[in-house]
């Protein structure tokens, strides 16, 4: 599991992202329990405080919540919340990069749109 972490962003952010990915993919359903901070720390071979930071980030965003004495659970509506959040970042992280890369390769607007349509059909 350790191998899933890279050095591009802070570990706690990566933990949060990986958990969000799993929730989006349906690995964890809403109201289902997710791994505890300690389990995460063990899985990724990181300090529990770092894992906790990532988890707390998701708690602050109402994606996870804590059931006293039991553990962390996926909040109702978490999937939608994640989607909304990522939609906002989608433009910055993916679209802008796509456009600037196309520009540096001298791919015209029409050609780019055709490429997008082709990918959508696959």
């Amino acid at each position: 599991m350790q191998g899933m972490l890279n050095e591009q962003t802070s570990i706690y952010l990566q933990i949060a992202q990986l958990m969000e990915n799993d929730i989006l993919k349906g690995v964890y359903q809403e109201e289902e329990q997710v791994p505890s901070t300690n389990e995460l720390a063990r899985m990724f071979r990181i300090n529990p405080a770092t894992a906790a930071k990532g988890v707390n980030l998701l708690v602050d965003e109402d994606i996870l919540y804590k059931k006293r004495g039991i553990g962390m659970f996926v909040a109702t509506g978490a999937v939608e919340r994640i989607r909304q959040k990522r939609k906002g970042a989608f433009y910055e992280n993916f679209v802008k990069t796509l456009v600037s890369e196309a520009k540096s390769l001298a791919i015209g607007n029409q050609e780019l749109l055709e490429m997008i349509q082709k990918a959508q059909q696959e």
Binding site: N38, A41, R42, R45, I46, N47, P48
Partner: peptide, 13 residues
């Protein structure tokens, strides 16, 4: 070394 880091985290837990 990996075994040690695991042991350390387990103990800390």
């Amino acid at each position: 070394r990996e075994q040690f880091y695991k042991l350390l985290l387990e103990d800390y837990e």
